[in-house]
């Protein structure tokens, strides 16, 4: 953290050449401001990390120590007992698998369906295109949460409660995904599409072999956004999944605290296990994830 250097020094650099234009006082205030800014940033960043550090530290304390001294954070005998007993109970591996399968399925279907629709809206001319475009765009105003009852009844009558499809299908129509793709496709040069068409490629082939291979940034943005969204969705899987072996990670974690008298290290260990997968992915692909998420919000 001490390696933080301020980019603003380059801003004040020209001032040394023209001392008359920028008095020293300005440079001092610039330096002072940067120091204060750095202090505030680091203070907040550390404050933001405290709850995570706390959970990790408590999770490796022996239960007997926590009972004797509940407010201490540290132990001289760190142990993975809490993690062991969570894995022994067995279900957490199902929850990981279920979360991964439902998130991956939703992501794949959404990417394909949304990009096809966006391609048509962006490149193909057909009747009512503008109308369909507006109708879909209006969908960003419909929150899935107020439609839970009819969605539940639909899946119930289709016999899809307690199945992966029950978790996946209602999360597919993600209108924001369509518009991220459409914005990207709108930027593709017309000549490229026309050349492919002139070569006799059908629309489906133009979409799949010409447009999709050059649309990696849009695909990765939508993939990240949808995957994180479905992985972390709590309310919907809570309603459609009751079988402990079919639960997704968030719903399973919630069921841990429902059991009475679970020791604190185990509660913190389950929080850590719940946090780890996406934290690791995030640490590895930070840049891409951040720009993907930012793009989904802005476009």
């Amino acid at each position: 953290m001490t390696s933080l250097t301020d980019g603003a020094t380059t801003v004040t650099a020209p001032a040394t050449d023209t001392p008359a234009a920028v008095p020293d006082r300005r440079i001092d205030s610039e330096k002072l401001f940067n120091r204060v800014a750095l202090g505030v940033l680091i203070a907040f960043a550390l404050l933001w990390l405290i709850p995570l550090v706390y959970a990790v530290l408590i999770s490796v304390r022996p239960t007997s120590e926590v009972l004797a001294d509940p407010s201490s954070w540290f132990t001289s005998n760190p142990t993975f007992d809490a993690y062991d007993s969570l894995f022994d109970k067995g279900n957490i591996l199902y929850w990981y698998a279920n979360s991964f399968i439902t998130s991956a399925l939703t992501t794949v279907i959404t990417v394909v369906a949304a990009s096809m629709a966006a391609f048509a809206l962006s490149q193909v001319r057909f009747r009512f295109r503008q109308g369909v475009n507006m109708l879909l765009l209006a969908g960003i105003m419909i929150p899935m949460q107020v439609l839970m009852i009819p969605q539940f009844l639909t899946l119930e009558s289709a016999g899809l409660l307690n199945t992966y499809w029950g978790v996946v299908l209602p999360q597919v129509p993600n209108v924001v995904a369509v518009f991220v793709f459409k914005t990207f496709f709108d930027g593709i040069p017309r000549e490229l599409i026309e050349a492919a068409r002139a070569d006799g490629a059908g629309w489906l082939r133009t979409y799949w072999q010409i447009v999709m291979p050059i649309s990696r940034p849009a695909v990765s943005a939508v993939t990240i956004f949808v995957f994180v969204h479905v992985w972390n969705n709590f309310l919907w899987p809570l309603l459609v999944v009751t079988d402990p072996e079919m639960m997704t990670l968030p719903v399973g974690l919630n069921s841990v605290q429902d059991a009475f008298g679970v020791p604190l290290p185990q509660l913190m260990a389950s929080a850590v296990l719940g946090a780890i997968p996406l934290l690791v992915v995030f640490a590895l692909f930070q840049r891409r994830i951040v720009s993907g998420i930012a793009g989904m919000g802005l476009k």
């Binding site: 907040f44 960043a45 550390l46 933001w48 990390l49 709850p51 995570l52 706390y54 959970a55 994180v228 992985w231 972390n232 709590f234 990670l249 968030p250 719903v251 399973g252 974690l253 919630n254 841990v256 605290q257 509660l267 913190m268 389950s270 929080a271 850590v272 719940g274 946090a275 996406l278 934290l279 992915v281 995030f282 640490a283 930070q286 994830i289 951040v290």
Partner: peptide, 17 residues
């Protein structure tokens, strides 16, 4: 990382902590 990390953690883990 410090500011964005909590955002990718499931609400259930946040609630436990």
């Amino acid at each position: 990382f410090a500011f964005f990390a909590p955002y990718v953690i499931p609400s259930a883990a946040i609630s436990l902590i």
